[in-house]
């Protein structure tokens, strides 16, 4: 009798497993299908795209790709936009992660008057989005001659409260303060201690935050589209916006190819680093 009950329980678990896996697979397909349609259409001619739906790739990718390069080049090369995005993303990532670690180190490793207040302040400003002050930001940047310039897209990355928050959480568990004392006894200066002892110990957190800072900057459309005016300075998301316009509208294959190409770099980065990205999201979310 006991055995029978066990069997029934086992069967119900099996059924549950099948249902749950089926729903998960459906959701995974939901994530993939829009991108799959994009890739398929990037390999089809504009006429074919207009006349029928297909999930099977065709052979016209190079054609679309060459058209795209040619059409983009009438204003600025596609590589240029990619280079611009890369330059901004790399510089702001380096600044953001380095200075955020430094800030977290300052409030964690030193006891000074106002340290608690500084920390509370960083927590408080974490929730203020850039959008609410963008009018003042825009006017201020143009007033000091930084409009149509990359500096306003890079320098503000130094003050990234969310990154500081993450760094401090990690630092509390990963950086024993006794090490700093022994470095002092060995005669190491405070900044040298930070650069040669604290930074290396923070490597896992630094790596995680580098990924997030890079993706955030690479995907940013709001600020660049507000500040940048000359075509050669445009970033990749701004080029994506242009693909909706007159110049591209007629050739559907070319637009899909353009979208596919702009997504590829981040696709590749994601599938290499997905393990760390998901672990980072889980860590960042569990804020006390």
């Amino acid at each position: 009798m006991n055995k029978e009950k066990d069997g029934g329980l086992h069967a119900s678990i099996m059924i549950q497993q099948i249902i749950r896996n089926a729903i998960c697979i459906f959701l995974c397909l939901l994530s993939l299908i829009p991108f799959w349609i994009m890739i398929v259409n990037a390999t089809r001619t504009s006429v074919a795209i207009q006349s029928s739906f297909s999930m099977i790739p065709s052979t016209h990718f190079m054609e679309n790709w060459n058209n795209l390069l040619k059409q983009a080049a009438t204003q600025a090369s596609l590589w240029r936009y990619m280079g611009n995005s890369l330059l901004i993303a790399v510089s702001s990532t380096v600044l953001s992660v380095y200075f955020s670690t430094m800030t977290a180190y300052g409030v964690t490793a030193y006891k000074f008057k106002g340290a608690n207040f500084a920390w509370a302040f960083i927590m408080a400003i974490m929730m203020i989005p850039v959008q609410v002050s963008s009018i003042g930001f825009f006017r201020f940047m143009y007033a000091i001659g930084w409009g149509n310039n990359y500096l306003p897209l890079i320098i503000p990355a130094i003050a990234a409260p969310a990154t500081v928050f993450f760094m401090r959480q990690y630092m509390i568990s990963a950086l024993p303060l006794e090490i700093l004392d022994s470095a002092r006894i060995d005669g190491s200066g405070e900044f040298r201690t930070f650069n040669t002892i604290a930074m290396p110990l923070m490597k896992p957190a630094v790596a995680t935050q580098c990924i997030f800072a890079f993706i955030g900057s690479w995907n940013n459309f709001y600020t660049p589209s507000m500040l940048l005016t000359s075509q050669v300075k445009f970033t990749l998301p701004m080029f994506v916006q242009q693909m909706r316009g007159e110049r591209f509208r007629s050739d559907h294959g070319m637009i899909y190819a353009g979208l596919a190409v702009t997504i590829m770099p981040i696709f590749i980065v994601y599938f290499i680093l997905s393990k760390y990205i998901i672990a980072g999201v889980a860590l960042g979310g569990v804020k006390e």
């Binding site: 430094m102 500081v164 405070e190």
Partner: peptide, 25 residues
């Protein structure tokens, strides 16, 4: 006092690029 040096860049940049634009707005 080194604590101040370490947190200074954050607060300077915050004041110039976030706080001032907010006040300006």
């Amino acid at each position: 006092r080194y604590g101040y040096y370490f947190i200074a860049p954050f607060f300077i940049v915050f004041a110039i690029f976030q706080l001032w634009p907010l006040i300006y707005t």
